[in-house]
């Protein structure tokens, strides 16, 4: 009997497509940010994508379709298959604190890939929600006149820009942790590519 796959093919595909789309969005987004920085710093041009503002905008507004379409497929299949609640729920603050304590002491178990610990659940659900915030705030920055409800929800054009930036920073923070954890537990990288 074949070993069952921890991650179905659609999940592995959407994960890696998302990773690539996020890489392009972030790298081109940094270049766009540099054209008119919100805060008192800018990103080194050498780690940005697009060469100049127009090039960065072309990349950003092309990769956004990949990010959004892939995100819709991910969410639809996740909920249709029941995987989302199975994997991420229940999620209690108590369990997060307990597992966070265990992680800090280096005693958090990773032996069962079929079950995420509470910290993982929180981190992954956070990444999903953060991407939703990035897409919605991005819609306001892109078309603030055409999405009046969203615009008011984010407090206007200028503050939607700030939210878009902070959500990007949070996603980059998540990614740094995520990559570090995958490096610490290399088995997870195999699971996300081969499926088992």
């Amino acid at each position: 009997m074949k070993t069952a796959k921890v991650h179905p093919l659609w999940l592995r595909l959407t994960h890696w497509i998302n990773a690539l789309a996020v890489l392009v969005m972030v790298a081109s987004g940094w270049r766009i940010y540099n054209a008119s920085p919100i805060f008192a710093f800018h990103f080194p041009d050498s780690i940005t994508l697009g060469g100049w503002l127009a090039g960065a905008l072309l990349w950003h507004f092309a990769a956004m379709w990949v990010l959004a379409a892939n995100g819709v497929v991910y969410l639809a299949l996740n909920f249709a298959s029941g995987r989302f609640p199975r994997r991420f729920l229940p999620l209690h603050a108590r369990d997060v604190l307990r597992d966070l304590g265990a992680a800090v002491r280096g005693r958090l178990a990773h032996d069962d890939p079929w079950h995420y610990n509470a910290v993982q659940k929180l981190a992954y659900v956070f990444a999903v929600l953060d991407l939703v915030v990035l897409v919605l705030s991005g819609l306001v920055v892109w078309k603030s006149v055409q999405f009046p409800l969203l615009r008011e929800l984010f407090g206007g054009y200028d503050s939607a820009r700030v939210v878009h930036f902070l959500a990007m920073a949070a996603l980059v923070g998540f990614t740094a942790l995520h990559v570090a954890m995958a490096a610490l537990v290399p088995k997870t990288l195999l699971l996300m590519t081969r499926g088992r």
């Binding site: 790298a27 780690i47 940005t48 994508l49 697009g50 060469g51 127009a54 090039g55």
Partner: peptide, 11 residues
């Protein structure tokens, strides 16, 4: 602009 873009950083 893209020639510069593609030789840069990440990708």
């Amino acid at each position: 602009f893209l020639r510069r873009a593609l030789t840069l950083g990440g990708l």
